[in-house]
Amino acid sequence: MNKMRRTNTFSVRKLPGFPAIAILCFAMLYAPIVVLVGYSFNAGSSLALWEGFSWHWYYAAWQNDQVQTAALLSVVVAVQASLYSTILATMAALGTTRTRPYRGQTAIYTMINQPLMVPEIVTAVALLICFAVIKQATDYRGLIYLVLAHTAFCIPFAYLPIRARLEDMDKSLETAAADLYATPWRCFKKVTLPLMWPGILAGAMLAFVISLDDVVITEFVKAPGQDTLPTYMLGQIRRAVTPEMNAISTALLAVSIIMVSLMFILSRKKSRE
């Protein structure tokens, strides 16, 4: 009986050609990356001709002053943007999950996630124009514009894991804390915050990765000389391409994989509790 039902159930795995299509899809996804990573170890300066294994291009990239400056700027912007966006996202998540249902809640939810829906190029142009006006008026040309822009588009990425964490949390825990003489502030400090902490960390890491690899908005907003790693690479690729680009890309890839893995481990911890 049981066996019969199993054979009759529709299963996508039994469709003809399923393994072939699956393998093809994965190949399409990963082959370019494998090639990129592979040629970052090329001893020669060609992107197509293998001339033996070497760490040469990693060393070259490490020694390159421009790469160093760009990488440093990337990290400075990403750290600030992920910090600010996570603080804002935490407040937004509390505001959308820890209040009585109110009118326009869905509208606010949509508005918080605006950067996920509006085409990035539109936001980029809008920011360019907006900041141009401010620059004209104040004559201030610091890094603040880049940080603000990154903070803005990082908010939904930080918001989603934090909100998910808060929604998973048993609300009776906060009720119990209030029942046991905790004022709202102490309840937040002693119960809500410690329990939502993995969500906050996950949100911050996701925001960091998103900020680190942004090109479009950065390209529009940055002042001359404010190159992040991705915009520097974009600039270089227009000229001569050497495996140095592969090396930098591979390093970025490694950082992203580490951050995403950490985030995944933190969310796993979440579901266990």
Binding site: L173, T175, A176, A177, D179, Y181, P194
Partner: peptide, 18 residues
């Protein structure tokens, strides 16, 4: 609730997991 000398045992227990 935090000003009432009344305490509750919850159906789900609501023990603090941390």
């Amino acid at each position: 609730p935090f000003k009432r000398p009344v305490n509750t045992v919850f159906q789900s227990y609501a023990l603090f997991p941390h």
